[in-house]
Design a protein around this nucleic acid. Structure first.
Lengths: 349, 349
DNA sequence: AGCGTTACAGCAAGCGCTTTCTATGTGATG
DNA sequence: CATCACATAGAAAGCGCTTGCTGTAACGCT
C-alpha cells in the first residue's frame, strides 16, 4: 500500500540502512549507490514517514510559532518572517523543517495546550511571539513548560515578548514598548498637548502595561497629572478603539489627543472621532503603535512608533534554527522608531 | 530521563496497554483503574510521545492550513476561523489536534513542499485556502499530491479556492469571485462610470482571473468596450495598488473609477489618487474586494464586496475535522455581498 | 450447580525508521 | 606479497506506542 524505506531499499538493491543514510546525508555513501537509491526513491515516489523517523531519531522537524491573534497583521508579519527563515523550501537543502503557526487567541489555556502539543510532537523549536499574560499562575506554568521543552532539546525563542525567567534557557527579543510609548506621549507633549486620553490594551498583558507605563513616564517627566479616568482598557481591535474613544469623549470632551495602544485601535479611534464631528489633527491628535502597513494610508497618516517586525521575526527564526547564535545573556532589546505623520498637530486654543 | 508509557504503567500497576487505552479512551477501562492511571500520569507529568503514537496508530493529530500570505488579514481571518474549529482546547475533549498554518508566500514550490511535509507527517487533514496558481504543470502536481493525501486518509478541504479535479476527493468551498467582481463593476456602471481602470492581482491566479472576468462580464453586458490598456496587473498589496494607479492615470488621465482586485490594493490606489490631487469619490471612485476590517475605516469608507471569511473558514474547519458532512458533490459556492460606501459616487461631468 | 456471557486487563507483535556495531572489499604500504 | 587502514554496506536492535487476540474473573441464566 504505502511505500516504505524497505521497498526503496529492495528496488535499489541495497539495505534499508543505506537508503536512510542517503536520505539523511550524514554518512558516506558511494556516489553510484546514492544515485541508484535516489532513482528508486523517485520511481517509487517515496515519502519518508515523519513520525517513524522522529521516533527513531528522537527529534522532529516541527517548529512551532505561537501567536496571540493570527488575524492581526502585527502577528502575521512576524510569523511570516519567522517562517521564512525556518524553512520549508526557503531554507538550505536538507534543513527542511515544518514551521507551523499556532493561534492562541490570547487565551492562556490555549497557549499552554499548544505548548503541550508541541512538546508532544517533540518540536525542534518553539517561538513565542507578542505580549505575555501577566498572571502569576499562568506565568509559572508557562515557565515550567518552557523549562521542560528546553530540557527535551527544543530551542525556545521569545519574539516581541519580555524575557522569561533565566532558568528557562529561552532567548528573548524584546520590543521596547515602554520607550516607544514614552516617545509618543513626549511628542504630543512637545506639541503642547496636556489633556490626552489613553486607550490601553487588555489588562494583564505585558505589552499593555509597558506601553502604558511609557505614557505615564512621559506625563510624570513633564509634571502633567495623570487622571485615571482618561485611561480606558479594551481589546486590541478597531472596535475597541472606536468604543473607547467614544467613552473618553464622554468623560472628558476637551481632550486634545488620543493615544492608542496600537495602530488598529488608533484606526477605530479615528473613526469614532470623525463620527463625532471632530477633525484630526485639528481638533484631536491621534497616535498609534507598531506602524503596520495600513497606517501610512490612514487619512491623515498615523503618527506611530515603527517596530521592526520583519527583522525581529527573521532574527528569531534564525536563532530558532540554530543558524545564529543567541547574544550573550540571551536578551536583545529592539527599539522602535517614532514616525511623525499627519495625525498629530498642535492643539487648538 | 523522559517519562514513557511504561513508566506510567509501572507506577499505576497496570500494563502499558491499559494506560494507552485510558489515554485514548476508545476501549472500556474500569473506573477505578482509569483513575489510578490518570493519577500516575499526573504525578509523573507524563506527555505522550506524538511521533511514536502516530507511528503505531498510523495517523497523527496534525492538521495543516496552507495560506498564500499570512501577513494578509484575508488569510489571517480565515486561518483563525479554521483553527478555532480544529481544536487545541477549543474543541471537545479528546479531539485535541494541532492546527498549524503554513505560509506558502504564493510560491508553487513552497505549496508543494508543504504538502509533502504534511504528507510526511501523515496529517489528519489539510485545508488549502485562497486562490490557486493557474499553471497546468503545477495544477497537475497539486492534484496528484491531493490525491495521494486522500489515499493516505488525509481529509482535504479547499477554502476560498476553486474545486480541484473531482478525483482528488477534495471538498471545496469556493468564493464567487466572478459574481462579486461583476456586481462591483455593475454598481459603477449604474452610477454612470464608463472609463474604469482595473488593477488586477498577479497573473496566473484563479482569484485574479475570476474577479477580472466578472469585471469584463459587466462591461460586456452594458456594451462598454474593454480597453486592455486600462488593466494593470500587480501583487496583492498596497504598494502594487499605489503604483498601478499611477500607471493607470498616466495611461488614461480621464478615468473616473478604479476597480481594485482587493481592499488592500484599493487602499494603495486611494493613496495614489490623493497624492495625485484627486478626490474620492468626487474625481475618481474606488472599489475594493473582500471587505477586510480596515476597509470601513478608510476615508472615505470603501465600497467593496464582503466575503464571509470567518464563516467559510469555520465551515472548512468543521469539514476538515469530520464534524460536518461535506455537501453532496463536495462543492459549495459562497457568495459575497456588495457593500456600497463612500468611495463610490456619480462621475463628474 | 453448571454454563455461556460480559467486562476488563495483559501479551506480544509490530508501525517504519535510525544508528551502532560489524563485515567486507579495496588500495596503500613495507 | 602480506598487512593495515580506510571506505562502504549490512545486520539488527531498538525508539514508544497501539491493538488484535488471548486470558480470566465475575455475573446471570436455566
Amino acid at each position: 500500500m504505502t511505500v516504505t524505506l524497505a521497498d526503496v531499499a529492495a528496488r535499489a538493491q541495497v539495505s534499508p540502512a543505506t537508503v536512510s543514510r542517503v536520505l539523511n546525508g550524514n554518512y558516506p555513501v558511494a556516489a553510484t549507490t546514492r544515485e541508484r537509491v535516489l532513482r528508486a526513491v523517485d520511481e517509487l515516489d517515496y515519502v519518508l514517514n515523519g513520525p517513524a523517523s522522529a521516533l527513531a531519531a528522537a527529534t522532529s522537524d516541527l517548529v512551532g510559532i505561537l501567536v496571540n491573534d493570527i488575524a492581526d497583521p502585527f502577528f502575521g508579519i512576524m510569523a511570516a518572517a519567522i517562517q521564512s527563515e525556518i524553512g520549508g523550501p526557503g531554507g538550505r537543502a536538507g534543513g527542511e523543517r515544518l514551521g507551523v503557526v499556532c493561534n492562541t487567541g490570547g487565551s492562556p489555556e490555549r497557549e499552554l495546550t499548544y505548548l503541550t502539543l508541541l512538546q508532544r510532537q517533540r518540536a525542534a523549536a518553539v517561538v513565542l511571539t507578542g505580549g505575555a499574560v501577566e498572571n502569576t499562575a499562568h506565568a509559572t506554568a508557562v515557565a515550567t513548560k518552557l523549562r521542560k521543552l528546553a530540557d527535551a532539546g527544543t530551542r525556545v525563542v521569545l519574539c516581541g515578548r519580555p524575557p522569561a525567567p533565566a532558568d528557562t534557557d529561552a532567548v528573548a527579543l524584546t520590543f521596547d514598548n515602554r520607550g516607544g510609548g514614552q516617545e509618543l506621549t513626549e511628542h504630543l507633549i512637545e506639541l503642547g498637548h496636556r489633556r490626552m486620553g489613553y486607550i490601553a490594551g487588555p489588562e494583564e498583558r505585558t505589552t499593555t502595561r509597558h506601553r502604558l507605563e511609557g505614557h505615564r513616564a512621559a506625563l510624570a517627566a513633564h509634571g502633567i497629572p495623570d487622571d485615571p479616568a482618561w485611561t480606558v482598557h479594551g481589546r486590541y481591535d478597531r472596535r475597541a478603539g472606536y468604543e473607547a474613544t467614544l467613552e473618553l469623549l464622554r468623560r472628558e470632551p476637551s481632550l486634545t489627543a488620543v493615544v492608542a495602544a496600537n495602530d488598529t485601535v488608533a484606526l477605530g479611534a479615528c473613526a469614532a472621532l470623525r463620527d463625532s464631528g471632530l477633525r484630526i489633527p485639528d481638533d484631536v491628535s491621534v497616535v498609534g503603535f507598531d506602524d503596520l502597513p495600513f497606517s501610512v494610508d490612514a487619512v491623515p497618516a498615523l503618527t506611530t512608533v515603527r517596530l521592526p517586525l520583519s527583522e525581529a521575526g527573521a532574527l528569531a527564526g534564525r536563532v530558532a534554527m540554530g543558524r545564529e547564535e543567541a547574544p550573550e545573556g540571551g536578551i536583545v532589546t529592539v527599539r522602535g522608531e517614532l514616525m511623525v505623520r499627519g495625525s498629530t498637530g498642535v492643539p487648538k486654543g
